[in-house]
């Protein structure tokens, strides 16, 4: 359970920077989304797919960096979360188009 101290501390400082970098990327993604809608930089037909795509990327970053989810170590959790997302998408599509 105990790790060597220097390794632990360098690992820790690494993670700090890693999370700040993730945060910066998320800000950029958010800014692009807001810009796409409020300014005339993207053809209108592409705006909605673009902002949904940006949202999806940001959500994945939240899960796999901020929330410390690991594809290899937490396979069962990842399966459940992706299943939940899938069923969620099905619900949204059904309610929007089949009503």
């Amino acid at each position: 359970m105990e790790q060597a101290k220097p390794q632990q501390e360098s690992q820790a400082t690494e993670s700090d920077a890693k999370h700040l970098a993730s945060f910066a990327v998320m800000i950029v993604l958010t800014a692009i989304a807001f810009a796409a809608v409020t300014m005339d930089i993207v053809p209108p037909a592409m705006v909605v797919p673009l902002i949904i795509g940006l949202a999806a990327i940001q959500v994945m970053m939240q899960f796999f960096t901020f929330m410390h989810l690991d594809f290899k170590k937490h396979r069962i959790t990842v399966t459940f979360i992706f299943t939940g997302l899938l069923f969620g998408v099905i619900c949204v599509v059904a309610l929007k188009y089949l009503v």
Partner: peptide, 19 residues
């Protein structure tokens, strides 16, 4: 995490209703 999975589906229903 499991609770988050459940809440994802619940919020999806509210999103769908909104749309």
């Amino acid at each position: 995490w499991l609770f988050i999975g459940a809440e994802t589906v619940m919020f999806a229903c509210f999103f769908g209703t909104y749309l």
